[in-house]
Each structure stands twice: as structure tokens, then as C-alpha cells.
């Protein structure tokens, strides 16, 4: 599997390179440091949330409520930022905590009531968005204080804060996924759900963690969202879940669970980001973007299936068993 995953990431990486090459041939402005930086800066939120979604999909779950979660937490963060006396710290706590609460709610319904993840998050998507719209009455949060909106463009030691946050998120998620019992339990649960509890894994807790962690990362993203755009629309993040899921799937995670890597998902994010940027630079009408993204998605998942099948075929040579089931057998 490791080989396959590596191969899959490599294939997507090559695809990213080919796309980048094509774009830079047509639009020289593409391959400039400032443009590359802007691609990264424009996709920070997507990348952060893709990290969480990877873990969710590895457990064989899915979360279509993250777009609503993002809007919910962003409005909340914005309202808190407007309160005099609030600072980065209060905003951070509010964003992360509200994200965790929303994610945990999904997790509890999925693990506790055994309702499929897609159904639960379909429901909570509407609940989160509905209560948000009801509360704000559709009004935007504007006039955010400068200390907050400057967050996105401030650099520390020459590195923009959003990038630092992204790197931290990647580091922490990688650490959790690869070096903790909890992270390996996420992979174990996705790989063989039927027996996970037999080796002492508290499957409910692991599922709840994955969704809560997704929520936490959405919360962090929501802080960046308001800082980036300076105004927050209560419809913020609508359909964003599909972008996040697409990036993760392009990166090779299997919706049936058990496999998916953070590196792959990051490549998936970059492919989406580069395409979006390239289409503008190449002066192609923007509505071509969905055609290309859709085709890449379809190609990626189809190739996966075809490759896997070839592998299976090769394994399927029999003559292996020679035991005696005859004679006095009953």
C-alpha cells in the first residue's frame, strides 16, 4: 500500500508539475515568486481544512458541513473581534472552541446514534447555516478592527502569519496522524472497522476526535477568513466543503476509508490553487475552471480504480492452496 500511495502522490505531483509547466509557457507571470506566494496565500484555508478532512475521510467518514461550520465560526469570531478589548487570543479561543463544538456535535451523532456521516453532516450543514442566518438575520459583519484584519498580511521573521499557521497545522496533524496512538487508531479504524474495537480502540472516541479536530481546524480557518476578507458574509463558506473534499480526493484519499495522506491532500490543494490562478493568468474565461477541475477529479478517481484492479488481477493467480480437505473430512 505504501508503494501505491507513494506512487499515487508521485503521479499527482507530476500532474501538478505538468499543469504548472503548461501555464508558465502561456503566462510567464505564473512562475514568479510573488505569484507563487499569492497562490499559497489564497489557498491557506483550503489547505488547513483539507488536513482535517483527510483524517475524517481516512476513518471512512465525510463531513459536508464544514462550509457551514466555517461561516458559523467566522461570524462568531467577527462579532467577538468587534467587542472592545478583545484581542488575538480571545479571537483564537472563540474560533477554535466554536469549531470544536460544531465538529463534536457531528461526531456524537455519528458515533453515538450510528447515523451515517454523510446524512448527519447533511443535516447539520443546514442546521449550522440556518441558525447562523437566523441569528444574523442575513447581515454581514463589517468594520472589523485593524488589529484583526492586519493579521493576514503581517509577517513574523519574514514569513506571513497565515503560512506559519498552516505549517503549524501540517506539523501537528502529521504528528497526530503518524506518531500518536490516536492517529494510528484513525487509520486502523478506517482499515478494518469490524475489528478495531477488538484491539482496544474506542471507535466512538476516535470518530468523535476526527470530527472535532476537523472542527478545530475549521475554527482556525474561520479566523483567517475574516482577517483575509475584512468583512464576513453569513453565507461564507457555502459549497466550500466540496472544494475541500475534492482536494483530498484528488490527493488520493479513499472515501471507503483506511487510506489517505496529508502530503497527497496538500498536492490536491495545490492543483486546485494552481489551476484557479493559471486560468486567470492565461486569460481563459473563468468558467472553464470547473470543466478542468471536474475532469481532473474524474480522471484521478478512475485511474485509481483501474490501477487497483490490475493489482488485484495479478494477485489472483491460484494454485496456492494444496491442503487436504478430502478424506475423512466432515
Amino acid at each position: 500500500m505504501n508503494d501505491l500511495l507513494k506512487k499515487r502522490e508521485f503521479v499527482m505531483f507530476m500532474m501538478l508539475m505538468v499543469i504548472s509547466l503548461c501555464i508558465s509557457l502561456i503566462a510567464p507571470a505564473f512562475l514568479t515568486p510573488s505569484n507563487l506566494l499569492s497562490i499559497v496565500m489564497n489557498n491557506i484555508i483550503l489547505a488547513i481544512m483539507a488536513m482535517g478532512m483527510t483524517l475524517v475521510i481516512v476513518t471512512s467518514g465525510i463531513d459536508v458541513s464544514v462550509g457551514s461550520q466555517l461561516g458559523f465560526a467566522a461570524i462568531f469570531v467577527g462579532l467577538v473581534a468587534l467587542i472592545p478589548g478583545s484581542n488575538i487570543f480571545t479571537v483564537l479561543v472563540v474560533g477554535v472552541v466554536s469549531g470544536i463544538v460544531l465538529g463534536l456535535l457531528n461526531g456524537i451523532l455519528i458515533a453515538g446514534a450510528e447515523i451515517p456521516a454523510i446524512v448527519v453532516t447533511l443535516g447539520t450543514m443546514n442546521i449550522f447555516r440556518g441558525s447562523l442566518l437566523l441569528y444574523t438575520n442575513g447581515k454581514w459583519v463589517t468594520a472589523l478592527p485593524a488589529w484583526y484584519t492586519s493579521l493576514y498580511n503581517t509577517s513574523v521573521m519574514g514569513i506571513p502569519i497565515p503560512i506559519i499557521i498552516l505549517l503549524l497545522v501540517i506539523g501537528v496533524t502529521h504528528f497526530i496522524a503518524q506518531h500518536t496512538r490516536l492517529g494510528r487508531s484513525i487509520y486502523a479504524l478506517g482499515g478494518n472497522p469490524a475489528i478495531a474495537s477488538r484491539v482496544g480502540i474506542n471507535t466512538g472516541m476516535v470518530t468523535m476526535f476526527a470530527f472535532a479536530y476537523m472542527g478545530a481546524l475549521t475554527g482556525i480557518s474561520s479566523i483567517l477568513y475574516g482577517a483575509q476578507l475584512a468583512t464576513i458574509d453569513p453565507n461564507a463558506g457555502t459549497s466550500f466543503e466540496l472544494m475541500v473534499i475534492s482536494a483530498v480526493v484528488i490527493g488520493g484519499a479513499n472515501v471507503l476509508g483506511g487510506s489517505g495522506s496529508l502530503l497527497g491532500s496538500l498536492i490536491g490543494v495545490l492543483i486546485l490553487g494552481v489551476l484557479q490562478n493559471g486560468i486567470i493568468l492565461m486569460r481563459i474565461e473563468p468558467y472553464w475552471q470547473n470543466v478542468v477541475v471536474g475532469l481532473i477529479l474524474i480522471t484521478a478517481v478512475t485511474l485509481d480504480v483501474v490501477n487497483n484492479r490490475k493489482k488485484e488481477e495479478r494477485k489472483k493467480v491460484i494454485y496456492v492452496a494444496e491442503e487436504v480437505k478430502a478424506g475423512g473430512s466432515i
Binding site: M1, H179, T180, R181, L182, R184, Y187, A188, G190, G191, N192, A194, I195, A196, R198, V199, G200, I201, G258, S259
Partner: peptide, 27 residues
Amino acid sequence: ISLFPNLTVAENICIGNDEVWKRKLNW
């Protein structure tokens, strides 16, 4: 077998073993 196809041999042997399967894993 009833183990985890997507984990390594070492992980499959040690998963759930309190001696080594700690919160923070020591590879």
C-alpha cells in the same frame, strides 16, 4: 487474520499493547 491491512507489520503486532502502544508512539 482480522488485522489491519493498511498498517505496518510492526503496528499490527503492537497495536493495543500497553507496553509500547502509548499515547505518543516510540517507533
